[in-house]
């Protein structure tokens, strides 16, 4: 398909989005990521039945935590798409990147010269 998507997006593969935990998302924010999103299978299509549904709840919880500490919750999102939807994958990557660009750099990174350097 050779679809392009923004090079800022770094993909971390997991066997199922159910493997993604709250701490993984928080760690990404803590280490200076401007945004994190989870791309799970379509709801009802999870090979492990409910991995994507469970992780949606974890994502919601992370958003709540971020809101409580004054970080924009929109920096963390969950999307659902099938592995056959390559075009949608690229579209989501662009959508998320645009949203994060609008929000600007993470306030965590702004005050941390080390992660600022790494991110640059």
């Amino acid at each position: 398909m050779r679809l392009n998507y923004p090079s800022e997006v770094k993909v971390i593969q997991v066997p199922c989005t159910g493997r993604v935990d709250i701490i993984h998302l928080l760690n990404a924010v803590e280490k200076g990521a401007d945004g994190v999103y989870v791309a799970g299978c379509l709801e009802g299509e999870c090979h492990y039945l409910t991995g994507n549904i469970k992780t949606r709840k974890k994502v919601e919880y992370v958003k709540k935590i971020l809101g409580e500490i004054g970080i924009e919750p929109e920096r963390v999102e969950m999307y659902n798409l099938s592995s056959a939807q390559g075009a949608r994958f690229a579209e989501i990557a662009r959508e998320m990147t645009a949203k994060i660009r609008e929000l600007g750099p993470s306030p965590v990174r702004m005050n941390d010269p080390v992660s600022e350097k790494k991110a640059a």
């Binding site: 709250i22 701490i23 928080l26 760690n27 924010v29 803590e30 935590i65 971020l66 409580e68 500490i69 004054g70 970080i71 306030p107 965590v108 005050n111 941390d112």
Partner: peptide, 15 residues
């Protein structure tokens, strides 16, 4: 671990 990470993020934000 979750609490530690949340507090670390909050403090980093406040510099």
């Amino acid at each position: 671990e979750i609490l530690a990470s949340a507090l670390t993020i909050a403090r980093k934000k406040e510099n």
